Simulated assay, not measured.
Amino acid sequence: MGTSISYKRPDGKENGGYLASAGRSGAPGIVVIQEWWGLQDQIKGICDRFALAGFDALAPDLYNGVVVPYHDTDAAGKEMNSLNFMDATDQNVRGAAQFLKRNGAKVGLTGFCLGGAVTVIGSTRIPELSAGVAFYGIPPEQAAKAVDVKIPLQGHFANRDDWCTPQVVDAFEAGLKAAGKTYEFFRYDADHAFVNEQRAPVHDRQAAEQAWGRAVAFFNKHLG
């Protein structure tokens, strides 16, 4: 449904990505951030699904074409740990937001795992954004503090997550609440990456569909 494109970052360099269009002028935009596996077909499918829901969706490629097979967690960890999260947010992700905002529409940001953490970072740093939805990813405090979140934020988290743990989620939520931020967090009796239907051992269809419905409603409310 979508297509591979190239767009300009704020620094003028080019970055690749996958764009799925709603097919109507003035559609709101959503930047979709990959898991630590890279720009997998599953993430492209998320973009396609957002397009069907009425949004222009762009997934920037943060790994410069590298896509890691699902079984190779060592390679995925290597790619994620070599990623400059701040540069990726300020340049690749912000450039994608600027690209989607060129028609004057509001733009949101969402992401999964690694992309969830980038979503939270982006919520503190990217002025073009109007809303964010993070899936099972929260960055270290030195990368983004709850008090610095500047947009309405929705979060979806798994109770059986040993990467983005319930304790980390609770602490960040407490920070949002104390700072008076606009947010809503949801927790699911599921495993990390429960939205990814290509990973059968962790996919939870019921939780994924519930989270999807909540995310679309949130974006409709804040981007519509």
Results as ranks from 00 to 15, higher is better:
Glu128Phe: 12
Ala178Tyr: 07
Arg160Tyr: 08
Leu100Ser: 00
Gln154Asp: 08
Gly180Ile: 11
Ala144Thr: 11
Ala174Asp: 14
Val120His: 11
Phe185Val: 00
Ala88Ile: 02
Cys113Gln: 02
Asp161Cys: 03
Ala88Phe: 07
Leu58Thr: 10
Pro152Ser: 15
Lys106Asn: 08
Phe135Gln: 02
Asn159Glu: 11
Ala174Asn: 15
Ser130Trp: 11
Glu141Phe: 07
His156Thr: 02
Asp148Cys: 05
Ser123Val: 01
Lys145Gln: 10
Met80Trp: 08
Met80Phe: 11
Ala57Pro: 04
Pro152His: 15
Pro60Val: 01
Gly104Asn: 13
Pro127Gly: 13
Phe185Pro: 00
Leu109Val: 07
Lys78Tyr: 12
Pro152Leu: 13
Arg102Cys: 01
Pro139Gly: 07
Val133Asp: 07
Asp161Ser: 05
Val169Arg: 02
Pro60Leu: 06
Lys181Glu: 07
Lys145Asn: 07
Val67Gln: 06
Gln142Tyr: 15
Gly180Ala: 13
Gln154Thr: 04
Glu79Ala: 13
Ala131Ser: 10
Leu62Gln: 08
Glu184Pro: 02
Lys106Leu: 10
Ile121Phe: 15
Lys145Gly: 08
Ala158Ile: 04
Ser123Tyr: 02
Val67Ser: 06
Ala76Asn: 04
Pro60Met: 08
Asn103Phe: 00
Ile151Tyr: 15
Val93Thr: 05
Val93Lys: 04
Asn81Val: 00
Ala171Ser: 15
Val93Cys: 05
Thr110Gly: 02
Arg160Val: 00
Ala76Ile: 00
Asp170His: 15
Phe112Arg: 01
Leu100Gly: 01
Thr165Trp: 14
Asp162His: 14
Thr73Asp: 10
Gly175Gln: 12
Ala97Glu: 09
Gln98Ser: 00
Thr89Glu: 08
Gly180Thr: 09
His156Gly: 03
Lys150Ser: 14
Gly122Tyr: 11
